[in-house]
């Protein structure tokens, strides 16, 4: 069993006796596994299973190993896998910096230390000074960047991306895509990307799994 990376060990998901997906792959740190398929092909079920949100009506077998640890049966909050959806899903009742501070691990004590981490991550994506803003007033690209930094602040061991670029327009898409992939490689995070956009797969330039 590999001690690092994300292993999808002989995973099968079915609904009402019908098999949706069968996959057996290993994603090393810093690498991207792209799962491509039309909607309804079970790729979102795969993400839900890895994140721990699979609806009980689905039947799933197989193991998920992250960093040498079997997380198949862990509750979602103990899995340390960061999720990114099509929409940025910034919490609308919090400011930008509150959104980021919500993600900072509890081990980092003190409001000031937590706020400093949040501010620094805003700076990393050139959004410094935006902390007090209402997330709804940010542009789509800015919201996606905040969502990415929020995700990384929680110190995940892997990233799960559910068509995170499909809501962005063409030019922005390439820019955000390289930002996300760059950050994942820099932090040596295994990435599971599901998409139906062939451009995503080309940009990831890594392993491809077609459904």
């Amino acid at each position: 069993m590999p001690r690092t990376g994300l292993t999808l060990d002989n995973i099968r998901i079915s609904l009402d006796q019908k098999e949706l997906i069968a996959i057996d792959r290993h994603v090393p740190p810093g690498r991207i596994l792209t799962v491509m398929g039309a909607s309804g092909s079970g790729k979102t079920s795969l993400l839900n299973m890895v994140a721990g949100f699979l609806d009980p009506k689905f039947k799933a077998t197989g193991r998920i190993i992250l960093g040498g640890k079997d997380i198949t049966c862990l509750p979602p909050q103990d899995r340390h896998v960061g999720l990114m959806f099509q929409r940025p899903l910034l919490f609308p009742h919090m400011s930008v910096v509150e959104n980021l501070m919500f993600a900072v691990p509890a081990g980092i004590k003190g409001r000031r230390a937590r706020a400093a981490l949040a501010e620094k991550s805003l700076k990393d994506v050139s959004l410094d000074g935006m902390g007090e803003r209402d997330p709804a007033t940010l542009s789509g690209g800015q919201q996606t960047r905040v969502a990415l930094m929020r995700l990384l602040l929680a110190d995940p061991k892997a990233l799960l991306l559910d068509e995170p670029f499909s809501s962005l327009d063409q030019e922005l898409r390439a820019e955000i895509r390289s930002l996300v992939f760059g950050m994942a490689r820099e932090r040596a995070l295994p990435v599971l990307l599901v998409t139906h956009d062939p451009d995503d797969a080309v940009a990831a330039d890594d392993h491809l799994f077609k459904l």
Binding site: P76, V81, L83, F85, F102, R150
Partner: peptide, 16 residues
């Protein structure tokens, strides 16, 4: 309520 809000929060390790 969009269940993904709580999924995102839980993926940060937030308790129930």
């Amino acid at each position: 309520l969009d269940p993904r809000y709580q999924q995102v929060a839980m993926s940060f390790g937030a308790s129930k």
